[in-house]
Nucleic acid binder design. Structure first.
Length: 478
RNA sequence: GUCCCCAUCGUCUAGACGGCCUAGGACACCGCGCUUUCAAUGCGGCAACACGGGUUCGAAUCCCGUUGGGGACGCCA
């Protein structure tokens, strides 16, 4: 038990950090923090053609956004090529691997052959039969070769913290390539070589790696190394239960950052996707999550990535955000939307008003745009609902005149004036209130009308009332 | 095709030892209350153990099968 926990997140930089990868990283991070261990970041970039520096940056950016700090790394496999070659070299010497002189396309053909022949001996690669002298001679003569691992007979099994015992017949495993003919090592080799080198104690990764695991177990055995513990995480699916992909919308974590989700909310949401603390709690801080996290709470069934609940988490976090952070976030959002010059003097008051109804940061520049900019549209639905009474054409200018003439413009006076007008006209105040709301905010959904007036100020309120009057004149014919 | 895995409300899930489950919570949805709209909030509602066999006094929980879904079968990771 005294052995320190060491886990790693090992993405390949062939794409951005997607939600599945983020969840894997998150669980590793939680596990490491829970046990006071180390969380190591390793970049699996041995596929030179598809890897790029940009993708590495993108992945780091995503991890940082989520607050998944790493203790070691990032290590780059492209810089550790010698380690892998010597690892493979040792297996070659021990006769546990062999040189394969097949051309690449030849092995592709043979591959197809295997499938038709219902496995069996066909899986025995012919290069495995080459004797050591011939093999050595051809290599010395400069003939290109790959190094394949020789799958031993019998069965292989391993214990998984979430799936239990998994066993396979070795004959379904084919002699896989360790080192490509260009000298670059492949996945299975680099993973185990590095996990051994880096002292990884727990391999926590996606369930799509379950079927790779037996091959890796064999590699550990061949190298005479003890097995790490394994925990495979159920996959994250799209709403149609298919593997999550771009078809389902954003899969990149940073896309969520840009849409206005709070990292804490995203973190909390992701933590509960495939894992449960065992009770009914849902809103949990990182600290609580860290304390509660355990592999035992990880479920086996794949989980659907559902946006509604994410939105709910986000609104919860937004609601509880301190005035300071909310302000900072709002400013950033407004700036990104190109809204910046509309009376930030009352920003605090506006945010206080909006706080409880925001679901995403992007709401600042969309549904609540009118609070920060004079450049906004009337929502068609709101117009249909609240601007249909023809008499509004008279009432709104009348209200405008009253506000213009009034000596003061306070919350109380503004309300008293409006209600007075309604009373004299023998109509319900709500009729005016709702219409004015559309005029001031463009929406049928907003905080209390008189609060809005205060926050907008007399000038803007009057200007918008004027604009509303114009709109009514144009749309209501009599 | 072959191998591996999974299966509780539409979604995320609770459900250690089978009885406390006429299956709990949350999101979403639908009512009602509040209200100046919406949101928030309060209350209430709808809604699931995939199916079929066993084992057992008793199964969502154990076993087998079926169906459905997912994953893996690269000189990708």
């Amino acid at each position: 038990m005294p052995k320190q926990v060491r886990v790693r997140f090992a993405p390949s930089p062939t794409g951005y950090l997607h939600v599945g990868g983020a969840r894997t990283a998150l669980f590793n991070w939680l596990f490491a923090r829970h046990h006071g261990g180390k969380f190591i970041l390793r970049i699996e970039d041995t596929d030179f053609a598809r890897s790029s520096r940009e993708m590495v940056e993108g992945i780091l950016e995503g991890l940082r956004w989520l607050g998944l700090t790493w203790d070691e790394g990032p290590y780059f496999q492209s810089q550790r090529l010698e380690h892998y070659r010597s690892f493979a070299g040792r297996l070659l010497e021990k006769g546990m691997a062999y040189r394969c002189f097949c051309k690449m396309d030849e092995s592709a053909e043979r591959k197809n052959g295997y499938r038709d022949e219902a496995a069996g001996d066909a899986a025995l690669h012919e290069c495995a039969r080459l004797n050591a002298e011939d093999s050595g001679r051809r290599a010395a003569a400069g003939e290109a070769f790959a190094i394949r691992f020789k799958i031993p007979p019998e069965k292989t099994f391993f214990r998984d913290h979430v799936f239990g015992r998994i066993e396979v017949e070795n004959k379904i495993l084919e002699d896989f390539v360790l080192i490509r003919s260009d000298g670059i090592p492949t996945y299975h080799l680099v993973v185990v070589a590095d996990d051994v080198d880096m002292g990884i104690t727990h391999v926590i990764r996606g369930a799509d790696h379950i079927s790779n695991t037996p091959k890796q177990v064999l590699l550990y055995r061949a190298a005479g190394e003890p097995l790490p513990e394994f925990a495979h995480l159920p996959l994250i699916l799209g709403p149609d239960k298919q593997r999550l992909s771009k078809r389902h919308g954003a899969t990149s974590v940073m896309a969520y950052a840009q849409t206005g989700y709070l990292p804490d909310a995203f973190f909390n949401f992701l933590a509960l996707l495939g894992w449960s603390p065992g009770d009914d709690r849902e809103i949990l801080t990182r600290r609580e999550l860290t304390e509660l996290f355990s592999l035992k709470g990880v479920g086996k069934a794949d989980a659907v990535f559902g946006l509604e609940k994410l939105d709910w988490f986000n609104s919860q976090y937004l609601r509880n955000a301190s005035a300071g952070t909310l302000k900072e976030l709002a400013l950033k959002e407004l700036e990104a939307a190109g809204i910046g010059d509309s009376g930030p003097e009352s920003l605090d008051a506006k945010l206080e008003l909006l706080k409880g109804r925001i679901r995403k940061l992007s709401d600042f520049s969309t549904v609540f745009r009118a609070f920060f900019s004079d450049d906004f549209e009337y929502d068609p639905d709101a117009c249909k609902k609240f601007l249909k009474d023809p008499k509004l054409k008279e009432w709104i200018p009348a209200l405008y005149a009253l506000y213009l003439a009034a000596g003061e413009f306070t919350l109380e006076s503004a309300e008293a004036i409006l209600r007075g007008l309604a009373e004299r006209q023998g109509i319900k105040a709500g009729l005016l209130i709702n219409a004015v709301r559309v005029g001031l905010t463009g929406q049928g959904v907003a905080p209390g009308l008189f609060d809005i007036m205060q926050v907008l100020g007399r000038q803007r309120t009057l200007a918008r009332l004027e604009r509303l009057g114009g709109y009514l004149n144009r749309t209501i014919s009599n």
